[in-house]
Design a protein around this nucleic acid. Structure first.
Lengths: 214, 214
DNA sequence: GCAACAATAAAACGAACGTTCAATTAATTC
DNA sequence: GAATTAATTGAACGTTCGTTTTATTGTTGC
């Protein structure tokens, strides 16, 4: 046999991306074979090579698009105002929303870095570094303005990022908690972490509405 | 050929454990072959099967021993006094010290869970759960005593654990920072995170205004 | 020094891997 | 409706995988 009726390159490629994200997130890159992936797409393994020259190319594409999407989401959510507290809140909220909405690609991008060639690894790390730099900048400005307590900008940035990325490890949508509630709680923890908390005074009222980002 | 001069089962098994931790931490379980592992040990692949019946048995052993070691380290470090603040500090400090000292087994235990059979996975998760329960207990008691601000015990425990485990992602010993300094900084962040910070009163160096956004 | 045991090498097993290639058919273009 | 292009199949390639089997040698106890 050969070309099947109703076959469509665009759809096959999109389905391959999606299936790859799901499979690799659950089983790991090395544990997913091209045949298994093809089976999920409903196609023979050889057909995948029309869209991705190698298995590693596929992985790299998924990771790059994840990182670019993250950067774009932040640029869209970043507040115009220079207020560090507002920017920190926007960063945390955007980060959590983005990662919860893309659990699979987050897992792939965080866990499968070692399967990339040295060259591609450094490309992904560069994107990640540029994103993390945004948070460091916020922390630095907040500390300099006397709004935040930051012993070490780099350490604090890593601590916050690992804390808020960790949401996807345990959080499953459509349970007792909504993304909004989780983001709100993590936002409070982040604020206290950097000493920017006003919760002690306003705690009974639950007031954090003014920090909402888009 | 067969048995080599000076061969010693105990040493071979220990060397296999160590090499496996290092290789799996760097390359991932699926990417490490029994032949590569054997090569690192200085032996043929078949020899490894004298000590570990299957590759997965080896992985499971490494993980189980890591989790048991973590539990034991905490039991040794746990303060006798019931003071929640002191117990929280001891937990954070022990956790960081333990994980920094065992980066490789931490990576393996955190990243390779999906390579375990369902039965063994649940054994490891049970050990992990029992360890995390200790932190939840501390948080709950601290909150009930009015010492901590804890919106949600489970979420706060996950946030703290992910934050302090994340140290091993970026921290490399023998650099500009010592384990003591890192642990101290993370301890401060953790205290503020749960609102158990006394820094506002004690820290006159860094004046930080009680700000109000909006 | 001889039997029992411990530790390994060497070779082989079938299965699965990523990838390539030629053939074939569906869709599109003119 | 013929020519062209797009999409896929099915078979095959060489390699590597985890594991088993068998034979062989070092070590230990008597």
């Amino acid at each position: 046999m050969a070309r099947t009726t109703g076959s469509d390159g665009g759809r096959t490629e999109a389905a391959t991306r999606e299936a790859a994200l799901s499979l690799i997130a659950r089983q790991g890159y090395e544990a997913v074979s091209m045949r298994q992936l093809a089976g999920e797409v409903g196609v023979q393994a050889a057909a995948l090579y029309r869209y991705f020259p190698t298995k590693e190319d596929l992985l790299f594409t998924l990771m790059r698009e994840h990182m670019e999407g993250l950067q774009q989401a932040w640029e869209a959510a970043r507040p115009a105002a220079p207020d560090p507290a507002a920017r920190l809140s926007a960063f945390v909220e955007n980060h959590i929303r983005f990662h919860v909405a893309r659990r699979h690609s987050t897992h792939v991008s965080n866990m499968e870095l070692r399967s990339l060639s040295k060259d591609r690894l450094s490309q992904i790390l560069r994107l990640r570094g540029s994103y993390e730099k945004e948070l460091r900048q916020i922390l630095r400005e907040g500390a300099e303005a006397g709004l935040f307590i930051v012993d070490d900008v780099g350490m604090t940035a890593m601590a916050i990022i690992q804390m808020i990325t960790g949401v996807i490890v345990w959080f499953r949508p459509d349970e007792r908690l909504s993304v909004e509630e989780v983001a709100e709680t993590y936002l409070s923890m982040t604020r206290r972490l950097v000493g920017a908390d006003d919760a002690r005074e306003k705690r009974n009222v639950r007031p954090h509405a003014e920090f909402r980002a888009g």
